[in-house]
Design a protein around this nucleic acid. Structure first.
Length: 1041
RNA sequence: GGGCUUGUAGCUCAGUUGGUCAGAGCACCGCUCUGAUAAGGCGGGGGUCGGUGGUUCGAGUCCACCCAGGCCCA
């Protein structure tokens, strides 16, 4: 017995028992274990953070990962799927900070790092349940019970080991650099973090006068969009080679770039010309004398970076607040003024604005300048400005102490390694990621925060000596707790506990303490190839053989500068190669209007709702089917519904059809053996199609072109299997007994379904499993091998021929439609082309049944039904005759096409004069089309044409009535919910002689079709149902016997 | 502002090395088939292929510029 597929169950109810079955029988684990000893296909899971709800955009990359892992498993590889959690970092801290209602860092310190970190640790798994649930529902098999977790001591120890490798090779340095800094989070952000937060905003755009020293009424005109930095101004920078001028405007003199004179508001007169370099060291008066520097300042310096695109060509410079400014400051040894604290507020020295957030101070500063007559002009300007990606505060750039890894020192190696990675799509690797690597800068890895892997560098308080422990053991050997006790084995490696460990300086005997920073959490996730296996403390023996590098990773495109980069950077340094060989990149999921989904816009799709409504199979299939992963997918709920109705539904029904009739006949696959070559042509055809599909699906999968794979499979299941094959074998299946013909149909359908279940298993794991298990007694489709095609069973000629038959049927239906004769009304003759006689004769029964005709006749000369139209074949003639083409086309249009064809058929060539050229026309150089001739029902498509004899004689009319009656009776059977095998008795009443005659003449036919043992005319009774049969009233009653 | 990518029917997408009334599915309308089907079939309406120029006998396809969305970077 074949288990019947429940076609009516709600998707979620359909999938749940299957999921339970997997769990009960431990199938996910088995799918790894049963390949023990097989070649490995190494997969790395990029760790998500479970402190936010999973969304539909997470479903896409999870689907991709799962499909590839399942496919590779079925291909015979052992694929381990270890889950992972990213647990450190700013996002977590921000979340907790919000909970506690803190807005600045100081509040955390007052609250206590210990308590704070404890909360962080808890918050990391806030949505773990939802993540598990989503992963589970989606059918993403991942070992969630043994994940790697970046906060575990083992993981941290590996990260320390890696950092220690860098440190030992002198790859880590400390430097003052201009960093993007979030005043609210109180930490600098890395480049990839800054990148996420650009927004368009309006800022003041101000033109400022700087009074030139010892020259009356003379000013430099400079421009800025950050007035608050003016307080720290120490220099003005001009381009050495650009032209500058002094102009007289009103009663004052202004100096600016000649090319920027357009910014002046009033009439002016040029009184002097300079090159930028002529202005070098020209002095001016300090704008805001809050701080009086010791070093020489307030003069003109030269810089190549000055542009003439905006501003005045005279650039205000504050070395503490800009990268270029900082560089100039170093070059000219300018004073370094940074009167801004870590909260982004002015320090006490700036008496007028002390304690005020710098951006808020802009207004007051502008007002002050205006009152003093130093403001030349102000306006608002729209530009993009970076904001903190988590807390939304505007970032400020300023100089800060930070730890760096010299990634630039091995940039070439990274670029080289990147070239060996297979990127899908390729342009990510070459373009976006490649470009980024080319411009790579040193990696700022320290964060002035609390919740993260502590930076494992200790500094001597006295002499600045550094040391770095690379393991817990080393920590124990080198350090003691502050109270003098030894470092315990189970020391918690987070702050504040680890901060209690002190070393004795080997150089000066002073106390060494850990530098307070924590490590960028991207360093954590980039370390995962090592950290997940606690390498090198464990697993060292098998690491390079079985665990590293990954054959495959897949994440969203937003990881380009994130995980993709850090994975490459760290493993290039540690192992000299990339930690992943191939990378499948998916674009973002957008809403159905092509807009980005976000919680704030309210257009985010609830992944749980979708999974509940349509099931995981439909959701997964849709995500793959809708558009290639590397183009942005517009998520359209109706699309998921469509997949469910059409594809999943059809597949279920085919399986259900097989089970229904297979069970009626007690069919057992193993009891029979008919070589495919000995089966009917229709069977050989679907087997051929199946093998062609297997071949191509595998090709697509190898290129990770999963979209083409599922599109092909969907079309195969719906068109080839369901709409043609199953439709055409119904008569064979209904026959009584177990003739070879029927057995062959069962065997074929069984084989097709079984192979289909395996083919679809990676994409739609639930329905595939259900079908597989309904067909076999085996444990799981996911413990199967992926089908391989048999070249001998692929019969291209037969596939082509079947195409003709399908075309003929399609055309004939169109023809019937045209004359409005429905298919139930039989017709006498169908005319088909002589050239296709062989096929059509062989498959005659298919056509006869589909079109309901009695006979097929073959005609050589289709001009009986149609006229020719002739056009040049541009592809052939175009290159030869070039610009004469339009005249040739015109000439052809004016010719008698039928005559031309006659000549071509006879002589093979026709001579034509156009534009004094002699044109030789052959069949190859023309496109020959046809048109209906008046009075015939005729259709054509390519090589195929059909015509129908539309005359209906007496006998056909009676037969049509009989078929109509059968249809009504079948409807009543269905309506009254009879079993398929029930025998019935039919009673009818009618006043139409025509119907009576039909019942008489076609009684056998009617009874056979409807499984009736009796067909009797009776007096009309109330329980008879009235029907309209071709315009005549008939009363019918059916009863089970 | 720069780089990459996308723009084809109301919606989701195909459209090969340039070759001639521009395709599919969904949705809509009409007809139709059906004892597996929430399906299927036939037909219809619906597109100046984002825009403007250019190359060519010929451009959805190649080139330039522009517009819009997305991603990344300043």
């Amino acid at each position: 017995m074949f288990k019947k597929i429940d076609v009516k169950a709600k998707p979620a109810d359909f999938e749940k028992p299957i999921r339970d079955y997997w769990k009960q029988h431990n199938i996910p684990q088995k799918s790894e274990d049963f390949r023990e000893g097989a070649p490995k296909f190494v997969f790395y899971e990029g760790p998500p953070t479970a402190n936010g709800m999973p969304g539909i955009h997470h479903a896409i990359s999870r689907t991709l990962k799962d499909v590839v892992c399942r496919y590779k498993t079925m291909q015979g590889y052992q694929v381990r799927r270890k889950a992972g959690w990213d647990t450190h970092g700013l996002p977590v801290e921000i979340e907790v900070q919000k909970q506690l209602g803190f807005s600045v860092k100081k509040e955390i310190e007052e609250y206590g790092i210990e308590k704070f970190n404890k909360k962080c640790r808890e918050s990391v798994f806030t949505y773990e349940k939802e993540w598990r649930e989503m992963t589970n529902l989606l059918g993403y098999w991942l070992d969630l019970d043994d994940p790697y977790i970046t906060l575990s001591n083992d993981y941290i120890e590996t990260v320390w080991w890696i950092l220690n490798q860098y440190w030992k090779k002198d790859m880590i340095y400390i430097d003052n650099k201009i960093v993007p800094f979030c005043p609210s989070c109180g930490t600098p952000l890395s480049d990839h973090e800054v990148a996420q937060g650009y927004k368009e905003v309006e800022d003041p755009s101000v033109y400022i006068r700087f009074k030139v020293k010892d020259e009356k009424n003379t000013y430099f005109l400079a421009w800025t969009t950050t007035p608050w930095t003016l307080i720290s101004n120490v220099a003005l920078v001009v381009h050495p080679d650009h032209d500058y001028v002094k102009v007289k405007t009103g009663d004052e003199y202004l100096i600016l770039a000649k090319a920027r004179l357009g910014v002046l508001k009033e009439e002016y007169e040029i009184v002097e010309n300079y090159k930028g370099k002529d202005l070098k060291y020209k002095e001016y008066e300090q704008l805001f004398p809050f701080i009086v520097p010791e070093e020489k300042a307030f003069y003109v310096a030269l810089g190549d970076y000055v542009t003439l695109e905006d501003g005045t060509g005279v650039v205000h410079t504050a070395p503490a607040f800009g990268e270029e400014d900082f560089a100039i400051g170093k070059e000219y040894d300018l004073p370094f003024m940074r009167p801004v604290n870590e909260e982004g507020k002015f320090t006490d020295e700036i008496t007028s604005w002390a304690g005020e957030f710098v951006k808020d101070a802009d207004k007051g500063i502008i007002k002050d300048l205006n009152m003093r007559g130093m403001l030349y002009f102000r306006t608002q300007m729209k530009h993009t400005y970076p904001f903190c990606w988590r807390c939304d505060s505007p970032l400020i750039y300023f100089a800060r102490r930070s730890w760096y890894i010299r990634t630039t020192s091995y940039n070439d190696k990274m670029i080289e390694n990147n070239k060996k990675i297979d990127w899908y799509p390729p342009y990510i690797g070459e373009g976006r990621f490649g470009d980024w690597l080319e411009n790579n800068r040193d990696w700022a890895i320290s964060r002035d925060r609390f919740w993260g892997t502590p930076l494992n560098i200790w500094l001597c308080e006295k002499c600045g000596q550094q040391d770095s422990p690379g393991s817990i053991k080393e920590l124990q050997e080198k350090g003691k707790l502050v109270d003098g006790t030894p470092v315990p084995d189970d020391i918690e490696l987070h702050r504040p506990y680890v901060d209690d460990v002190v070393f004795t300086c080997p150089e000066c005997g002073g106390i060494m303490r850990r530098t307070p920073e924590v490590i960028d959490c991207w360093f954590d996730s980039g370390s995962m190839p090592f950290g997940q296996w606690h390498y090198p403390f464990e697993n060292e023996d098998i690491f390079d053989k079985e665990l590293f590098p990954a054959d495959f990773i897949a994440e969203g495109i937003d990881q380009t500068r994130g995980w993709f980069y850090t994975m490459l950077a760290i493993s290039t340094f540690i192992k000299g190669r990339s930690s992943y060989k191939s990378c499948l990149v998916n674009e973002m999921v957008l809403d159905k209007h092509g807009k980005k989904m976000s919680k704030s816009k309210g257009n985010a799709v609830d992944v749980f709702k979708i999974l509940d409504k349509y099931g995981a199979d439909a959701t997964r299939w849709y995500l793959l089917y809708a558009s290639p992963p590397w183009t942005p997918t517009r998520f359209d709920e109706e699309g998921v519904l469509e997949v469910n109705n059409k594809f999943i539904g059809t597949l279920k029904n085919v399986a259900s059809f097989f089970a229904t009739y297979g069970n009626i006949d007690n069919f057992e696959y193993d009891e029979y053996s008919i070589n495919p070559k000995d089966r009917p042509e229709l069977d050989r055809w679907i087997i051929s199609r199946l093998n062609s599909v297997i071949k191509r699906v595998r090709e697509f999968n190898e290129k990770y072109d999963l979209t083409r794979a599922v599109r092909l499979l969907q079309s195969f299941v719906i068109n080839d299997v369901s709409n043609w094959y199953v439709r055409r074998i119904r008569k064979r299946v209904w026959a009584s007994g177990m003739e070879n013909d029927k057995v062959a149909a069962y065997m074929t359908l069984y084989e097709v379904l079984l192979a289909t279940s395996k083919l679809c298993a990676p994409y739609a794991p639930y329905i595939s499993e259900e079908i597989y298990r309904s067909l076999t007694n085996k444990e799981s489709v996911h413990l199967e091998n992926y089908p391989e095609h048999d070249e001998e069973l692929i019969l291209p000629e037969l596939e082509k021929e079947m195409r003709y038959i399908i075309d003929i049927v399609s055309l004939a239906r169109a023809a019937r439609n045209e004359v409005q004769i429905k298919i139930r009304q039989p017709l006498r003759t169908l005319y088909a082309p002589e050239e296709l006689k062989g096929v059509v004769e062989r498959m005659k029964s298919l056509i006869v049944e589909e079109i309901n005709i009695h006979d097929i006749e073959f005609v050589k000369d289709k001009t009986r039904f149609m006229d020719y139209t002739i056009k040049p074949d541009y592809k052939v003639m175009g290159p030869k005759y070039g610009k004469h083409m339009s005249h040739i086309a015109q000439a052809l249009q004016n010719m008698d096409a039928n005559h031309l064809i006659d000549v071509l058929n006879k002589d093979g060539v026709y001579h034509l004069d156009v534009d004094t050229n002699e044109i030789k026309l052959t069949k190859e150089s023309l496109q020959i089309d046809t048109q209906n001739k008046e009075g015939f029902v005729y259709g054509e498509d390519g090589d195929v044409f059909v015509a129908l004899d539309t005359r209906i004689d007496e006998e056909l009319l009676l037969e049509g009535n009989a078929r109509e009656l059968v249809n009504k009776i079948q409807f009543m059977r269905k309506e009254q919910d009879f079993d398929i095998m029930d025998r019935i008795a039919i009673s009818f009443y009618t006043e139409s002689d025509e119907i009576k005659e039909a019942c008489e003449k076609f009684a056998d036919y009617i009874q056979k079709e409807t499984l009736a043992v009796k067909l009797a005319e009776k007096e009309k009774t109330d329980d008879m149902k009235s029907w309209n049969v071709n315009g005549k009233e008939v009363f019918l009653q059916v009863k089970v016997i």
